[in-house]
Amino acid sequence: MMMNIVTITADNWEKYRRPIWQFVKRYQQENANSDSSRWLFQLRRHHFNRPGTSIKLVLWDGKMIALMACSNYGTTNSTFIVHPTYQRTHIVLNILKEMKEELGVCYTKIKYDHIHIVKMALQAGFAAIGYADSHEKVSLWFAGGHWHKNDIFERELSVE
């Protein structure tokens, strides 16, 4: 068994576009950050040239088991979905570290009650910097790398 992390680029977007959409549709409701995945369906090749836009896939023997995607370093859009079977593994830690290393700074929201994913984010060097309370769902904002809390929209971020 072999795990592989794939970075999506403008060159391989067409190859992975449909599998990504299918994965998102199937698992977004069960995941730590699923309310902001609609933007992926409008993503086009030219978007990969924008700073802070990245998609990472985790493949296990060729099967997609995790996805992390962000635009504008995660301040505008951030999607983080892990197959339910693998949510309690270190795959979460690996994909968070990869995204942070590639972009230099990365933001994402994680539902507060997904404790294992919150722990993995902390182990990956992310810091909980605030919370967002919308539609009766409370999510924690996490930042990794060279972050600054002012990067997150003030209306989004609630810090005591």
Rank of each mutant, 00 (worst) to 15 (best):
F48L: 03
E160D: 13
Y107M: 12
E160C: 10
L67E: 02
E154A: 14
T75E: 06
Y86N: 02
N150M: 09
M3D: 09
V159D: 11
F41S: 04
F142K: 05
D35F: 08
R18C: 07
G125F: 05
T75A: 11
H46Q: 09
E30D: 12
K15F: 13
I95K: 00
I117Q: 14
S71M: 14
T53P: 02
H90E: 07
M2G: 15
N72K: 05
R50L: 14
V105D: 03
L140I: 15
L140S: 06
R26L: 14
K25F: 02
H90D: 11
L57Q: 01
N49A: 04
L57E: 06
H146R: 12
R50F: 10
L122D: 11
D61H: 01
Y112Q: 15
E156K: 10
I65H: 00
R17D: 06
S78A: 15
Q22Y: 05
M64P: 03
W147K: 07
F23A: 06
L157Y: 09
T75Y: 00
P51M: 01
V82E: 06
A121L: 09
S37E: 05
F48T: 00
W141F: 15
K119T: 14
S34Y: 09
K25Q: 11
K100Y: 01
T9L: 09
M68G: 01
W147S: 11
I91Q: 02
A66K: 02
L59W: 00
A121H: 12
R17I: 08
K63V: 13
I65V: 15
W13H: 05
Q87A: 03
W60A: 10
R50S: 03
L140R: 09
L57D: 02
E101N: 12
N77G: 00
D133I: 07
S34C: 07
V159H: 07
R45D: 08
I117H: 08
A132S: 13
R45N: 11
K25L: 14
Y16K: 03
V24F: 03
C106E: 00
Q29L: 11
A127D: 13
N94M: 13
H47L: 05
I20Q: 05
Q22V: 13
K109H: 13
I55D: 00
L103K: 02
E30Q: 14
T53N: 07
L57G: 03
H83C: 04
A32F: 04
K25G: 11
E154W: 04
M68P: 00
G125H: 02
R38G: 07
E154V: 13
G62I: 05
T79W: 06
T85S: 02
L59V: 04
G104Y: 08
N72A: 15
H148S: 12
F80T: 06
D151P: 07
K111M: 14
Y86V: 06
A66S: 12
F48G: 04
I20S: 03
H47N: 12
V138H: 11
I152C: 07
K63A: 08
I95E: 03
N12K: 05
T7A: 07
N31S: 13
Y107F: 15
N31I: 08
S78M: 04
V58W: 00
K111N: 12
D151L: 10
T53L: 08
R44W: 04
H90Q: 09
G52P: 00
Q87G: 02
G104F: 05
L93A: 01
G104M: 06
R18V: 15
H83W: 05
K25R: 09
